[in-house]
Write a protein that binds this DNA or RNA. Structure first.
Lengths: 121, 121
DNA sequence: ACATGAAGCGTGTATATACCCCTATCTCCG
DNA sequence: CGGAGATAGGGGTATATACACGCTTCATGT
């Protein structure tokens, strides 16, 4: 329930960019690793491979990322498009603003607890 | 990401009962309020009405709850079946065991932080 | 060189979730 | 009493997510 509320707030904050918080996280992960395979992305975001594939398809349709084959012909490699990079730049401050709002509401310790849980589990 | 990990643990713990943690939470909410309308349940669990309807349909197919019309003919009222109550009794200790495991891993404060976030947001 | 097993993806299926729109029902006021 | 507005659900559509299965490609040992 807590996650739904948190996610809804980020989604609302990112609304002007046309992406949601899951997509934002995915684009950020791609940005730092590109070019990157689906499997590698899935590991980074702790998502099932098949989920990655479908999620990437969505942002690809939006023109935010481009996919191709890697040197290893089995791999599907993903990279940001110029448009994707632009959207990410626009989304950054919105995301941070939301983060600040949430922190003001729940306190820095509780926000940190979420990051800790991710590490500890 | 943290939520996915937490949910996956509870789902694994509840596996012997055939229900997942979202369904467990829903059945618990029904147990405490039955007979209860979809809208009321949705408010309790902070879920969209349409989501409630679809989720209820799943547990209804499993024979865990029964639905009918209320005095207000618009309302769909839900109550646990005997089977649903049995499954819930079986699930309780599994859920608690998982909760204890998680607390041992992340610490009571961080676990409490999740409940707090839910209240504060 | 090739058979075998491993790795990477895609698809099918199922649940969870939200938003929008439509219909049915209820309430309340003039 | 009858219409206006509010409320309850249901269905369509879209995203996010997981698991099982099957196909393709790669790597490795003999």
């Amino acid at each position: 329930m807590a996650t739904r509320k948190v996610a809804a707030r980020y989604d609302a904050a990112l609304e002007p960019t046309g992406i949601n918080v899951a997509q934002y996280a995915m684009l950020r992960a791609i940005e730092r690793r590109q070019p990157v395979s689906l499997t590698e992305l899935g590991r980074a975001l702790d998502l099932d491979r098949s989920t990655m594939g479908r999620n990437i398809r969505v942002v690809e349709k939006l023109g935010l990322v481009a996919t191709g084959r890697g040197d290893d012909q089995r791999e599907s490699v993903v990279r940001l498009t110029d448009h994707g990079a632009t959207v990410l730049r626009k989304a950054g401050p919105l995301w941070e603003g939301c983060q600040t709002d949430i922190e003001a509401r729940i306190g820095a310790e509780r926000l940190q607890a979420l990051a800790d849980i991710n590490t500890l589990l």
